[in-house]
């Protein structure tokens, strides 16, 4: 059947067209939510600042909240289960000093994953958030080969009970979205909220382009580092104390 023939029956005669007001959707707007219908803007660059001195090795608040927020179940197969964020313990073999820090997608300004993606599914939003457009991801995993941070997971099995905010299914690649859905609603990412509420407040979220924001002030005045800064991918996630 052609497209038109298949759609033909839809022009059924029975129901008269009712033209009323177009459907109005009222959404509760948080203080800084971007107004409905407005696109993300390059004026912003969302980022994270993580103070590892306030990140105890045993605390997993960020990870737990991420799994809950994004609906990432545990299939009991660590080699193939998705992890958007993980705690990495880093030990200096010379001194023995060990720090623990969360690593997630670093939302690079020049993301390797975006460059290598054949279809353009791997993409960077105007406000710097790096995402996988799972509608055109073919599951080739080249982005996973290219990412120096091991930030992405391939979905190895069918999923059920997905969260509305994070539709996910077998055969595509996923990763941290910086909780784009929450950021758009004027909230901070789930991990950061959990770190501030249940952890020691190691994580700060904000707009790196807004000189008045806490994150921008601290990045401008305190010492911060980025993982694999030598690769010059310009990540939006900065760390302190490593």
């Amino acid at each position: 059947m052609t497209d038109t023939s298949r759609r033909a029956f839809l022009q059924g005669t029975a129901v008269a067209a009712v033209t009323l007001a177009p459907g109005l959707t009222l959404i509760a707007t948080a203080a800084d939510a971007r107004p409905a219908g407005e696109a993300a803007s390059p004026k912003q660059r969302w980022g994270l600042l993580i103070d590892t001195t306030k990140c105890p090795a045993e605390c997993t608040a960020c990870i737990d909240s991420c799994k809950e927020e994004m609906g990432l179940p545990d299939h009991g197969r660590p080699a193939t289960d998705a992890q958007y964020i993980r705690k990495v313990s880093v030990k200096d073999p010379a001194s023995g000093k060990t720090v623990s820090l969360p690593v997630m997608c670093q939302h690079c300004a020049k993301p390797a994953c975006v460059d290598v993606c054949p279809t353009g599914a791997s993409m960077k939003r105007a406000d710097g958030i790096v995402l996988v457009d799972r509608h055109i991801c073919i599951g080739c995993r080249f982005c996973m080969m290219a990412c120096p941070y091991k930030a992405r997971s391939f979905i190895h099995e069918d999923q059920t009970g997905q969260k509305i905010a994070n539709p996910r299914g077998k055969g595509c690649v996923e990763g941290c979205t910086l909780c784009a859905h929450r950021v758009d609603a004027g909230e901070m990412p789930a991990c950061t909220e959990a770190c501030q509420n249940r952890g020691k407040g190691a994580m700060v979220f904000g707009d790196l382009n807004d000189p008045a924001s806490e994150i921008a002030v601290r990045v401008a005045t305190e010492a911060t580092t980025r993982i694999r800064a030598d690769l010059k991918l310009d990540p939006a996630v900065r760390y302190q104390g490593i």
Binding site: Q11, T25, A40, M123, A185
Partner: peptide
């Protein structure tokens, strides 16, 4: 009836790629 597929595909690009919410 006729166009929901096109509307949906349009919306999904707007929301995911441009970040347009409340569509």
């Amino acid at each position: 009836r006729r166009n929901h597929m096109d509307l949906l595909k349009h919306q999904r690009n707007d929301t995911l790629r441009q970040g347009v919410r409340g569509g």
